[in-house]
Simulated scan of single mutants.
Amino acid sequence: MQKKYLTATYYFDIESPEIQELIADYTLVPESEKIARLYLKVRDGWRYSPFNIGLTAKHFKASSIFRKNEAHCIDKSILYIAGLRALGIPARLRLAKVSNHIAVERLEKKLGTSEIAPHGLVEVYNNGKWVKCSPIFNKELCALYNVEPLDFDGSENAILQEYNSNDLKFMEYIEDYGSFKDVPLDFIKETFKNMYPSLYDVFKNENEITI
């Protein structure tokens, strides 16, 4: 039943040298440790940036993401999923709409709103159930905004923090778009176009931009 969430695709190119390098240190450790250790590597190894955006197939290819220093939420989710599948652990992409409530000035200036859509998450199949996680906010960013970094070992959900350590609203889920066995590029593009029509026009001439 979960076999389709283990397969390689254009986006989850799990046999590529880059993804094999990503998982090289975790192939011989217990499964629960694979989940936790790879999660930390993706969470902290690529700095989160909501401002680097691409809407091409190549942009969302796991091996291409691996070669970057920073990545968007969908990008980091794709990378973690590819690594999990390469380790034999079923994983899939989940998309949603979220709102950021802290340090939103630049985001609102660029996007025209504090809402981010689609936002990427990961679902991992472990111990007979699907568990959600967010390998997005690296620990340095969390420290900057006084938010506890999320840990994840596959035992329970670890999704975005609703409040920071000062009990200020941090992130809020607005809408759930469901789960996907592969990267739904057309859906991502259409959602982005509906959310940010003026910014979408920029992509007529540019495949990838930093806003």
Score class of each variant (00 low, 15 high):
L55A: 02
I65C: 09
P50N: 13
N52D: 15
S49L: 06
S49K: 13
L40A: 08
I35L: 01
W46M: 00
A91T: 02
F51C: 15
G45Y: 05
A36W: 06
A57W: 09
D44M: 04
G88K: 07
N52M: 13
L22K: 12
K58D: 15
E70N: 04
K61V: 09
I53W: 05
N52V: 15
A62Y: 07
E18I: 02
W46F: 09
A82F: 00
R47Y: 13
I53C: 09
S63T: 09
P30T: 00
G88M: 08
H59V: 05
N69L: 13
Q20C: 14
I19P: 09
S77M: 00
A86S: 07
D75A: 08
P90Q: 06
A82N: 04
W46P: 13
A91E: 00
Q20T: 10
S64L: 14
L79C: 10
L79S: 04
K58V: 10
E18C: 08
R37P: 11
P90L: 11
S64W: 12
I74E: 10
A57N: 04
L38Q: 03
F66K: 02
K76R: 07
E33Q: 06
K76N: 06
T27H: 00
P90G: 11
I74N: 06
A86F: 08
Y48I: 05
Y39G: 08
L40I: 05
I19Q: 03
Y26N: 04
S32F: 10
R47N: 13
E18L: 12
A24Q: 15
R85V: 08
I81R: 00
I81S: 03
K76H: 11
A36C: 00
F66Y: 14
K61Q: 13
Q20V: 12
H72D: 03
I19K: 05
H59Q: 11
S63C: 05
E21G: 07
Q20N: 15
L55R: 05
S32L: 07
C73A: 11
L22E: 12
F60C: 07
A82W: 04
S32H: 12
H59I: 12
K41C: 04
R37S: 12
I78A: 09
A71M: 03
A24G: 06
N52L: 15
L87Q: 08
T27A: 06
I65V: 14
K34P: 05
A24K: 14
Y48C: 12
R43H: 07
A36S: 09
Y48K: 14
D44P: 04
S49F: 15
G45P: 06
P30M: 11
E31D: 06
R47M: 14
I65K: 00
G88P: 07
V42Y: 12
I35M: 02
Y48S: 06
G83N: 08
K58F: 12
Q20W: 01
A62V: 10
C73E: 01
V29P: 02
T56R: 14
Y80A: 04
L84Q: 06
R67W: 13
I35S: 11
R47L: 15
S32K: 15
G45F: 02
Y39W: 05
I78S: 15
F51A: 15
D75S: 10
H72A: 03
A82S: 04
A62G: 07
P90H: 01
I81G: 02
T27K: 01
H72Q: 09
P30I: 09
I81K: 05
L40H: 02
R43F: 01
K58A: 14
A36L: 02
I23P: 03
R37N: 12
E70A: 14
A62N: 02
